[in-house]
């Protein structure tokens, strides 16, 4: 159940070019947060910006009562957030949304496709999946435009999982996209499962590939989320619904998602 907290900032440090790790003390959120869930953050005083923004939870330390968010400082909102220091407070609402759960009866590897700033929910998924009997093999495909845009590579390596890095320009890892790596990983695998988060074109490519190959796949979507709590209906995504005209319905990314089965999604 989500709550609204003035959370104390424990750390807010730059990790890579413009990529920041924010650690917040919020025991009520840390106690319940799961992979795929997000917090809705309000930065600043007054009315600019007015609305909250969603950030996926990257790591959780329930015993310490804290959790991490990893974000790119790009627009006015996140640039402002990046200027905050340890000891400052930030208003957060969460944990919100559904979770990535490990798919059952998967003989092959669980493949986590993490594109750019989409890495956080998959990091938490990898962390929680480790040590579970159903996790026979875990492969993380960590991609970005360049080595400067890679997010959480060090964190994935620290977990001791198999990490395959790709960059569009070849500045780190394989010169190519996550799709090149994904085709290779699933090519020789018996019945794998795929979990993905990243930019929409990447998610669409992963989802359509998996649906075509009949590989079970779950993706985490990001849309504009005015309320984050499921009341405003402003963040809907199209899902298949045979009972509706034209065979689709709108469901809330914030409350019914952000994690969806690739098979149910319709891409515009």
């Amino acid at each position: 159940m989500p709550c609204q907290i003035e959370a104390r900032i424990l750390q807010n440090a730059s990790e890579n070019d413009g990529i920041y790790r924010l650690r917040l003390h919020a025991p009520a959120i840390a106690a319940h947060a799961g992979p795929g869930q997000f917090v809705h953050v309000l930065y600043g005083d007054g009315f600019g910006p007015l609305m909250r923004r969603p950030f996926s939870i990257h790591d959780v330390e329930p015993a310490a009562g804290c959790f991490d968010v990893v974000y790119a400082a790009r627009g006015a909102f996140t640039t402002g957030m990046a200027a905050l220091r340890a000891g400052d407070t930030l208003s957060v609402v969460g944990p919100l949304g559904n979770t990535f759960t490990l798919m059952e009866d998967i003989a092959g590897p669980h493949v986590l496709v993490a594109g750019g700033v989409g890495a956080p929910p998959l990091h938490l998924l990898a962390k929680t999946a480790l040590g579970k009997p159903e996790t026979r093999r875990l492969v993380v495909i960590n991609g970005a435009r360049t080595s400067h845009h890679l997010v959480a590579t060090g964190d994935f390596l620290a977990l001791g999982v198999e990490v395959r890095v790709t960059t569009d320009d070849g500045s780190a890892g394989r010169h190519g996209t996550v799709m090149d790596e994904l085709r290779e990983v699933v090519g020789d695998a018996q019945r794998c499962a795929v979990y993905a988060c990243g930019p929409e074109p990447m998610l669409r490519a992963v989802a359509e590939f998996c649906v075509a190959q009949r590989i079970p796949c779950r993706v985490s979507l990001e849309t504009v989320m005015p309320c984050g709590t499921g009341v405003c209906m402003g963040c809907v995504v199209k899902v298949r619904d045979p009972n509706e005209a034209d065979g689709f319905a709108y469901v809330r990314a914030c409350h019914d998602g952000p994690v969806f089965d690739a098979e149910e999604l319709l891409w515009d």
Binding site: F47, G48, P49, L50, M51, T223, V224, P226, C232, M233, G234, V236, V237, E244, A245, A249, Y250
Partner: peptide, 23 residues
């Protein structure tokens, strides 16, 4: 009611516009 297509909302100066379409 299924409601309107996305995008349905946008933040404006000290406000927001919505066109949910009564979903």
């Amino acid at each position: 009611r299924r409601g309107n297509p996305m995008p349905r909302t946008v933040e404006t100066a000290a406000g927001m516009l919505n066109a949910i379409g009564l979903q």
